[in-house]
């Protein structure tokens, strides 16, 4: 069986601005048709990585390739392979939407006849046909985002890089955007999407990469990362009597491992704890709680999401003390 070449391969890329290290030995691979959610706090190195991929920035060391083409050496080929939508719109005064798209189509070397058809097609895909005669600078932010995506799709790129596409969109537009991205993936496009709206990403991406302080903290399929980062499960006990909260906290601290963090909440009459205990161990603790006649109405496992994972990984990155053991599976990697 012939294995398909990955669409994006970033190998040991380091980018320094003077003494400041923006990217530190970044390695990342993305296969065709995958949607990568590229997340990290502000200033983490996301935009620097994207700039290197689109050929706007030269790595200090390492290589980045798209479809086997070096991003620095093969700039002209990269421009045809990649559709890039930066976080700023880049509007021109006094230009109507149709003229704006016409300019970019011509700039990408599309013939006039083919361009006209393609413009109509991308306007239909992104839902901007009714805005074709409006001036781009007068559009609302959400409308501009749509036009920006239409512009990105014009030359039918294989890799689409979208920097914060959901920024400033209303809930309906956000849902439509999500559907649009899924449709693009359905057409076989590879997508890299950055966003601060993590629940959005978790719904559309099949792969995530978390970057912090220029270091890739985790990457791989979303479920794998969630499982690996959150190896300690979070449990919540709900009581009916607030006065028993202290005694239950004391009881739990005696029976759980030392690292289990206990968080009581008087207002909610709950105690949350994070523990590496397996199901049997938890069942034993529950039996003991019941035996001690604590007024418990519920014990449940709290599901962690991408936001929790992001917070865990980036906090560890910020303190430069990664508490997780560097673990690796076939698909997902959490970097120590």
């Amino acid at each position: 069986m012939i294995q398909e070449e990955p669409m994006v391969v970033i190998e040991h890329v380091t980018k320094k601005y003077g003494s400041f290290v923006a990217l530190d030995d970044l390695c990342l691979t993305l296969n065709r048709g995958e949607i990568l959610g590229f997340i990290g706090p502000n200033g983490a190195g996301k935009t620097t990585t994207i700039k290197i991929l689109v050929g706007h920035s030269r790595p200090t060391s390492g290589t980045a390739k798209i479809n086997g083409v070096d991003c620095t050496q093969g700039a002209s080929k990269i421009k045809k392979l990649v559709g890039y939508m930066p976080d700023i719109f880049g509007s021109y005064d006094n230009m109507r939407v149709s003229e704006y798209l016409d300019f970019f189509g011509a700039a990408f070397g599309m013939r006039r006849k083919q361009r006209r058809l393609r413009i109509a097609e991308v306007m239909e895909i992104t839902g901007v046909t009714h805005m074709k005669d409006l001036f781009v600078e007068s559009l609302s932010h959400g409308m501009q985002q749509r036009v920006g995506i239409a512009r990105t799709l014009l030359h039918d790129p294989e890799l689409i890089i979208l920097d914060e596409p959901a920024n400033g969109l209303d809930p309906r537009a956000r849902i439509e955007m999500r559907q649009l991205l899924l449709d693009l993936a359905g057409r076989g496009k590879t997508l890299i999407v950055t966003s601060h709206i993590l629940p959005e990403l978790s719904r559309i991406c099949n792969k995530i990469a978390i970057i912090s302080h220029g270091i890739l903290r985790a990457d791989g399929p979303i479920e794998q990362i969630l499982r690996q980062v959150n190896q300690k499960r979070v449990w919540e006990i709900i009581l009916t009597d607030v006065e028993k909260l202290d005694s239950l906290q004391k009881f739990l601290s005696e029976h759980l491992e030392d690292e289990a963090s206990l968080k009581p909440s008087e207002a909610e009459m709950t105690i949350r704890f994070q523990s590496s205990a397996n199901d049997e161990e938890v069942q034993k603790i529950l039996s003991l709680i019941v035996a001690q006649q604590f007024p418990v109405v519920q014990l449940r496992e709290v599901q962690t999401d991408l936001e929790d994972t992001f917070m865990t990984v980036t906090q560890e990155g910020a303190s430069q003390k990664v508490s997780l053991e560097g673990s690796e599976s076939e698909e997902g990697k959490v970097h120590a």
Binding site: Y92, D93, N94, E99, D102, F103, R112, R115, R116
Partner: peptide, 24 residues
């Protein structure tokens, strides 16, 4: 509505004219 940019026309030239009020 303006015409599409010609196949042999410099698109930057046309863009500059179009995005300037006095370039129209």
């Amino acid at each position: 509505r303006s015409w599409s940019i010609g196949n042999w026309t410099n698109p930057v030239l046309v863009k500059e004219f179009r995005c300037r009020k006095f370039g129209r």
